[in-house]
Lab assay of single mutants.
Amino acid sequence: HNLTITQGKLFFHYNPKLCLSEIHKMEEVSGTKGRQERNDIALKTNGDQASCENELLKFSYIRTSFDKILLRWEPYWPPDFRDLLGFMLFYKEAPYQNVTEFDGQDACGSNSWTVVDIDPPLRSNDPKSQNHPGWLMRGLKPWTQYAIFVKTLVTFSDERRTYGAKSDIIYVQTDATNPSVPLDPISVSNSSSQIILKWKPPSDPNGNITHYLVFWERQAEDSELFELDYCLKGLKLPSRTWSPPFESEDSQKHNQSEYEDSAGECCSCPKTDSQILKELEESSFRKTFEDYLHNVVFVPRKTSSGTGAEDPRPSRKRRSLGDVGNVTVAVPTVAAFPNTSSTSVPTSPEEHRPFEKVVNKESLVISGLRHFTGYRIELQACNQDTPEERCSVAAYVSARTMPEAKADDIVGPVTHEIFENNVVHLMWQEPKEPNGLIVLYEVSYRRYGDEELHLCVSRKHFALERGCRLRGLSPGNYSVRIRATSLAGNGSWTEPTYFYVTDYLDVPSNIA
């Protein structure tokens, strides 16, 4: 807008934040220059609390790290170098490059900038070799853009010569660093050979998330399962459950009422301010606690030095998902009996873990797994792929695949051998790939016309006998059925096997 004052003059007093240069501009645009008398524009009460600059400061050096910015700028000295009290560095987070010096300023003089007072450097006698002032900004957020400017702080001049310097606002972004852990990993099994893994992005990506790394490792069953005799009275049979499938998407929606109208769909109840505040506090606490764990609990591995020492970490090797089922080394339970199943799973520490690289999504279907087997899954978020990966501390989750139908069934015939004193040795093959492992066998036998009897055969007993022995049988026709019990439950009964026990007292003698 054009402003013209045809008559009258300007009068400025007691404006401590208004620089004289701005008042002189007002004289020019209003056409009143030359009308004012000496005392109409006070030299001592206008701009006496402001830094009124008329020179431009330029930054000469900028260096960044993930949490620091090192700045240096060209030296500046007023005509009387004693008038320079120091520099004021202003900075704040700036997602967009549209910041002005006066953003967030209120009537009390406060604003949204963080201000650092910096002492002037030592003055050199040689004007050509003056030290460049600077400042190291610490405690910054990774991968965050900051708006920065600097200006001088000078003393009051009796001659009211307006001098000083100020830089333009520059924008500097800190470097990326390792992201925080992925949030809320959930693993479920939808079949006997697959596990579905879902997660949420890290709360602090500290860069642009480029991919996720998912490692999985087959877990050995508890050692007590191999040692305890679950045929003993009072000892509860062990059981394991597989990871249940995901709930429906509708039930997972946030901010939804727990109660549904019987007449149909209901609208979600909005969260109160107290609920939102509580969630923010919980989120802040979780982030602080995660940072504490990362800094205190997890110790970084030592990389190899120039002395030739090897990095103890196993090298990563990509495998196809079809090879995942046989990740671990199978060892027989008892070496003397080769027909026992290889369900003991000690994992070799030198073995390469299978892994998958996930790009542009937060889910993965891990296939080719062994049925009813526990897996430990390790999830890392990465925001750099080359020249070397920059990934987060791992988040861990466990899951067990679903049982395989008929995996616990005894394959092959049940054979028998009759000894003296009416002892019958029953023999059968253990299931080759049971659900988890076989903890015991149930032997059901009966003599024709009598009630059915049951015998429990422990895992250890089966390994020693290759089956079991029935003792003290009365003469007669017998039928026997056997079924295995694994961590997933009972298998199917075998087809009945028949044998006849004679009275050993009636056996004919070869003595003449």
Rank of each mutant, 00 (worst) to 15 (best):
M427A: 12
E420W: 09
V329A: 01
E452C: 08
N360A: 10
Y375T: 06
N360S: 11
L487R: 15
Q219A: 12
P508L: 12
P349M: 12
S392M: 03
E451K: 13
V480M: 08
K302H: 09
L440W: 00
Q256V: 12
H454F: 03
G306Q: 13
V414C: 04
K361D: 07
S367T: 08
K271H: 05
V501M: 07
P508W: 11
A330V: 07
L232S: 13
N326T: 05
A399E: 07
G449V: 00
S305R: 13
S262I: 13
D506Y: 09
M427T: 11
Y396E: 06
L470V: 15
N326P: 13
S223K: 14
E227T: 10
N490A: 05
Y498A: 09
L464H: 08
Y375K: 00
G436A: 08
V214P: 01
S458G: 11
S203W: 07
D261F: 05
A394F: 09
A336N: 12
Y441T: 04
Y500T: 10
Q219Y: 15
A330R: 15
F499D: 00
A335R: 13
E495Q: 11
F355A: 12
S363R: 08
A484E: 10
R483V: 03
G308S: 13
E249P: 05
N510P: 10
N206Q: 04
C391H: 01
S284P: 02
P332L: 10
V443M: 08
E495A: 09
E404W: 12
K361C: 05
S203F: 10
R316S: 07
E258T: 11
F289M: 01
P434R: 02
D204M: 00
R319Q: 15
N422G: 08
I438H: 01
N383S: 04
V397M: 15
F285M: 06
R469N: 14
S283H: 15
P312A: 15
E388V: 05
C231M: 06
Y212T: 09
K287D: 03
A463N: 13
E279S: 04
F462V: 08
A220V: 12
L293R: 01
V329P: 14
A309L: 13
N326R: 14
L321K: 13
R469F: 13
P245H: 10
P403R: 04
L453E: 15
A335M: 13
G325T: 13
Y441S: 01
Y441K: 02
N490M: 07
N208G: 04
S239T: 14
K236R: 08
F499N: 01
E404M: 14
A484Q: 03
S274N: 05
N477D: 09
T333M: 11
R318Q: 15
H211I: 11
Q429Y: 13
A395Y: 07
E389C: 13
I438P: 02
P312Y: 10
S251P: 09
R471V: 09
I438T: 09
S283W: 06
D503M: 06
V457P: 01
R447T: 07
V414N: 03
S305W: 09
V443I: 09
S444P: 00
D385H: 13
I482L: 10
R459P: 06
P332Q: 14
G467S: 07
K287F: 03
T485A: 03
E260L: 11
Q275N: 05
A463M: 09
D229G: 04
L440D: 02
S363N: 06
P475E: 06
H211Y: 15
A335V: 12
D261K: 10
N422T: 06
E356D: 06
E247H: 12
P387H: 08
D291H: 08
S284C: 07
L228K: 09
H416M: 12
F419W: 15
G264F: 03
K406T: 10
C231P: 06
H254P: 10
C266M: 10
E442A: 11
V214F: 01
E260S: 11
N383P: 02
V423S: 10
C231Y: 07
T386M: 13
I209V: 10
E247W: 13
N208A: 08
S243L: 12
Q256T: 08
P434A: 05
S262R: 09
N326V: 02
L473N: 03
R353V: 07
Q252M: 06
T343D: 07
T272L: 04
V365L: 12
C267T: 07
E217Q: 15
S492G: 14
E465T: 12
L437P: 09
P238H: 06
R466T: 06
R240L: 14
M402L: 03
N435V: 05
S284K: 06
H416S: 12
E356G: 13
L213A: 14
S248F: 14
L379E: 00
N206T: 02
T303D: 07
A335N: 11
N360Q: 09
N383W: 06
F226W: 04
C269D: 03
P338R: 11
V324P: 12
S444G: 15
P475W: 10
C266A: 09
E495N: 12
V297H: 06
P431H: 00
A395H: 14
K278W: 12
S239L: 15
K317I: 12
V443C: 03
S344Q: 13
V397W: 06
V327P: 09
A407C: 01
E388A: 07
L225G: 01
H416C: 11
S262L: 10
V327D: 11
E362I: 10
H294E: 00
G322M: 13
W216E: 04
V299A: 12
L437T: 01
M402C: 12
I438W: 03
V423Q: 03
V214S: 04
R483H: 05
E227W: 11
P475D: 05
I377P: 03
C456Q: 03
Y375Q: 02
A309M: 05
K406S: 09
R301K: 11
Y230C: 11
L473M: 12
L277A: 12
R319W: 09
N422C: 06
V423W: 07
G374P: 10
A405S: 09
F246A: 11
S474R: 07
S262G: 08
D503R: 13
R286Q: 03
K278R: 08
P245T: 10
C391S: 04
S268D: 07
G234D: 04
Y478W: 10
T272D: 02
T343E: 07
H371I: 13
N339E: 12
C456V: 05
S274V: 08
D222R: 14
L455M: 13
Y478G: 00
A263Y: 15
T373P: 02
P312G: 13
P403I: 05
F215K: 10
S305L: 13
V214M: 04
G476D: 01
L321V: 10
T288N: 05
S239F: 15
G472W: 13
R353F: 08
K406D: 10
D229M: 06
F372V: 01
R313H: 00
R301T: 07
F226I: 08
R218Q: 14
Q252I: 11
I366V: 11
C266R: 05
F226T: 04
H454W: 04
K287Q: 06
E310K: 02
S474Y: 11
K302N: 11
D291P: 03
K317G: 09
N421W: 11
R319L: 06
S458F: 03
R318A: 13
P475Y: 10
E247K: 06
E265H: 08
L455F: 08
K357L: 15
S251D: 12
K361Q: 10
S367R: 09
S486C: 04
E362Y: 10
L321Y: 11
V359K: 12
S392Q: 00
T241D: 15
F289H: 01
E265F: 12
C391A: 00
K302P: 15
E378K: 11
T343K: 13
H294T: 02
F289K: 00
Q275W: 08
S243K: 15
Y396H: 15
L237P: 05
Y212C: 04
T485D: 06
R316G: 11
